[in-house]
Design a protein around this nucleic acid. Structure first.
Lengths: 178, 178
DNA sequence: CGCGCCATGTAAGCAGTTACATGATTCC
DNA sequence: GGAATCATGTAACTGCTTACATGGCGCG
């Protein structure tokens, strides 16, 4: 049910199409939520039936027609109700690499270090992109507190991950087994 | 499909029942994976059909009978193949609180600070429990590298979350809006 | 006498992923 | 000529959650 509130949140800020939302998920929300176009379009239809959003059809010549969504009063009220009344559920994380971590003892020294280096590199790239996005975003002076806080979260998360990997490496390099 | 490898990983370390696995998920894997007994029992059945695990039935008097699982050769090979050959997929996170964060600008100053304090408290409790578990675990001198690394990850994650919340609070308290 | 622990399972429903489907325009 | 971008949608499937279902034992 939370995808719904993520969508309501995005629509509350600016006039967007389903297509725009897909990109906002990819650029700004990667660090804490994921979704695909098929799920997003479906949820938007459901929400429209329940009168939480409505749309305006824009006819275009050189590209396909599009639907620009906006919140209804009911939608806005429901979003705020959820935010302040609905009890907090803790994050659900599915991190494959941590599963691999649990079986480090049955892998060789070399295999483990290769895996760790791959992850460090992946996170380093993510960190770089996220920092670039934050800087670009700050220059725009957009004053979107929500976005500012969540990018910062993304940056801190990536840094933590890299530091943890480096700590793991040093611990493994110290050990003599395998 | 990753639940399967999480299960294979657990079974590779010790002789466990489905019931034990449920508790291992709750105690040691909360930080990076979640599952429920219904999904676990179902997956164990599937894996047994595919001959990745087998079980030994233990008849008990004062409690229900139980099935103790162990890896087959095929299971162990498949686990290692997955760990070193299967390309890394990045973590999938679903964090409701970060969705709430994106709409901070449409909430009042007070509502936002209440939410942040709730989360800080929740994470503080998690951190305390996780640190207690690590210390207890280190005293046992269990030498399980995988578990040592993942608890440490849990601790670092919780600390990062708390620090980020505190940074957010200071940023909001500095601001005069709302 | 009720709650929690041990221990297993099935069924129904919802959430999320991948594949199928279309089609013009723009850029290389 | 091929790939990427814009823009929307449906269908099939897998993964995950919640509810249903059983039953003895020990503790307060």
């Amino acid at each position: 049910m939370s995808l719904r509130y993520a969508l309501l949140g995005i629509i509350s800020k600016r006039r967007v199409t389903g297509y725009d939302v897909v990109h906002i998920f990819k650029q700004q929300m990667v660090h804490f939520w994921g979704s695909t176009h098929s799920q997003i379009y479906t949820e938007l239809h459901k929400m429209e039936k329940e009168e939480l959003v409505d749309h305006e059809l824009v006819i275009q010549e050189s590209s396909p027609n599009k639907k620009i969504y906006s919140l209804t009063d009911k939608g806005r009220k429901e979003l705020i109700r959820w935010a302040i009344e609905e009890p907090l559920k803790s994050a659900k994380i599915k991190d494959e690499f941590l599963i691999k971590t649990t079986i480090f003892p049955i892998l060789t020294h070399k295999e483990v270090l290769t895996l760790l280096d791959e992850v460090i590199e992946r996170e380093r790239i993510t960190l770089e992109k996220t920092e670039a996005w934050r800087d670009h975003f700050k220059q725009d002076n957009k004053q979107d507190l929500g976005a500012l806080l969540t990018v910062e979260y993304g940056i801190r998360y990536a840094k933590m991950y890299i530091e943890w990997c480096q700590w793991a490496k040093s611990l493994i390099e110290k050990g003599t087994t395998n």
